[in-house]
């Protein structure tokens, strides 16, 4: 799969939802915890060596599983291979909590489900489609039918 690294690098320079130096360990056997600058930008998690401007890597956060790992850490894995985990070590419980909350929301599909839920609730309460006033009620990405059971 082709992608332009420069585009991703540009994205990694965008304002972050959350950024911190965390301990990070990749999913490969024998990996050790390394200090990384970890940056959450939209639905991508970028990680950098602490002395470098360009990221070492990026994780797309769709279909991911965020889990608590003791002590004061969390892991990210992906639905197609949940055993393959990226571990992150935080400085405190609070920091860990903050990251897990942010990661939980950092998915386009999560946003889509929230939107459809809100739209449906508002329509039930008020009888009006809240998207109509913006002229975007027909848009494919906001349709109930776009969600599979």
């Amino acid at each position: 799969m082709r992608y332009n690294e420069k585009e991703l690098q540009a994205l990694s320079r965008q304002p972050a939802e959350l950024a911190a130096e965390l301990g990070m360990r990749g999913p490969k056997k024998g990996s050790v915890v390394k200090r990384r600058l970890v940056k959450l930008v939209v639905n991508f998690l970028f990680y950098f060596r602490t002395d470098e401007a360009e990221p070492v890597g990026a994780l797309l956060l769709e279909r991911c599983i965020v889990a608590r790992e003791e002590p004061s850490g969390f892991s990210i894995s992906f639905m197609e291979d949940p055993e393959r985990k990226y571990y992150f070590k935080c400085c405190s419980e609070e920091q860990c909590q903050e990251w897990m909350e942010a990661l939980h929301q950092a998915s386009y599909e999560f946003m889509r489900r929230s939107l459809i839920f809100y739209r449906n609730e508002i329509q039930k309460m008020t009888g009006k489609d809240p998207l109509e006033q913006f002229g975007i009620s027909e848009e494919a990405r906001f349709q109930l039918s776009s969600l599979k059971e």
């Binding site: 799969m1 992608y3 690294e5 991703l8 690098q9 360009e54 990221p55 070492v56 890597g57 990026a58 994780l59 797309l60 769709e62 279909r63 991911c64 992906f78 639905m79 197609e80 291979d81 599909e109 494919a140 990405r141 776009s146 969600l147 599979k148």
Partner: peptide, 19 residues
């Protein structure tokens, strides 16, 4: 730069809706 390409490809083919 590394990317979790396998997961990205998996998302591309997943049954979540295409826009």
């Amino acid at each position: 730069m590394k990317l979790n390409e396998r997961s990205v490809a998996h998302y591309a083919l997943s049954d979540s809706p295409a826009d």
